[in-house]
């Protein structure tokens, strides 16, 4: 009957026990759980020597604001996970980073996003080289209806990265090797990419992204359409790729976020609520909303 009141009581109860059991170190320094109404970003959104920086980014779809004043850095050679309930704006934010939102007519972005110190929304910035530098892997594997070879060679071809066929072969092979797919497909490069299994297709899409040698790879729930085995392979791959690239990954799986990322950012209804070391976010969240989410209270 009075569900709201019960919920409140329960929350307070859990809060108390948590403060008592897990929070002694911080409790001494007066660990504060920011309450639900607070929308300021908690934690450490900025890093030294960042690859990409975002300052006060707002995104609007028509009149509706999807992202509110988000400031966040993406460091070098790190995996940053973005988590949050559906519709919280994490995918929208990700798509701002390589201006994929440009393809949506009603979408408007304000604020500043830089890549290696250069404003990606600057007047003289062309999206074509930008998207070569900031690659993207999508939720559903989307290989082109072309051969495996042509799928990987597509990016290098449109950007003119190879002078001749041998160089192109080389790029294709290297990319497929990095994506851990080479051994599985090397004998059937001329077969359609759509004929591979879901996990292989997703690795093909990753190889396709790597082939244009980006600096940052954006991944929008790359494993949500895959089975656990394929997911594990992709996660291992992400771990290897971070040696070379900065990776921002949106995921609905908190286990995945804790397995693959070094930093985690929690979004809620367009606000960046909390960001910090992955271990810290999942063990001692400082914001009530983050705690609610990771303890499965909602989402």
């Amino acid at each position: 009957m009075d569900a709201a009141a019960n919920f409140e009581e329960l929350t307070v109860g859990i809060e108390n026990t948590q403060t008592a059991s897990t929070g002694p170190a911080k409790a001494k320094s007066g660990r504060i759980l920011f309450d639900r109404d607070s929308r300021d970003t908690v934690g450490e959104p900025f890093v030294e020597d960042a690859r990409m920086t975002c300052r006060d980014v707002n995104v609007y779809y028509g009149d509706k604001q999807a992202i509110k004043d988000v400031s966040l850095d993406i460091g070098r050679n790190e995996v940053i996970a973005m988590i949050g309930p559906s519709g919280c704006g994490k995918s929208t934010f990700l798509r701002c980073l390589n201006r994929m939102n440009d393809t949506i007519d009603t979408c408007r972005v304000t604020g500043q996003i830089t890549l290696d110190g250069i404003d990606v929304y600057g007047k003289d910035i062309d999206v074509v080289p930008l998207r070569a530098q900031v690659g993207m892997v999508f939720q559903k594997p989307n290989p082109f209806p072309k051969s495996i070879y042509d799928n990987v060679a597509y990016g290098p071809r449109i950007h003119g990265l190879a002078q001749n066929r041998a160089e192109l072969d080389d790029i294709v092979e290297t990319s497929l090797r990095k994506a851990g797919l080479w051994e599985e497909v090397k004998d059937r490069m001329d077969q359609p990419g759509t004929g591979l299994s879901g996990g292989q297709q997703q690795r093909l899409c990753i190889a396709r992204t790597i082939a244009v040698s980006p600096e940052v790879i954006l991944m929008d729930e790359p494993c949500s359409a895959l089975d656990p085995i394929a997911t594990a392979i992709i996660e291992d791959l992400i771990d290897e790729l971070k040696q070379q690239y900065s990776i921002a990954i949106v995921t609905h799986s908190m286990q995945q976020a804790s397995r693959v990322s070094q930093r985690t950012a929690y979004f809620h209804l367009g606000d960046l609520i909390e960001v910090g070391d992955t271990a810290q976010i999942f063990t001692t969240p400082r914001h009530q909303l983050t705690q609610d989410y990771i303890t499965g209270r909602f989402g």
Binding site: V137, F138, G155
Partner: peptide
């Protein structure tokens, strides 16, 4: 399909 191509620049 389009997203894939746009995403590659």
């Amino acid at each position: 399909m389009r997203d894939g191509a746009y995403g590659l620049g």
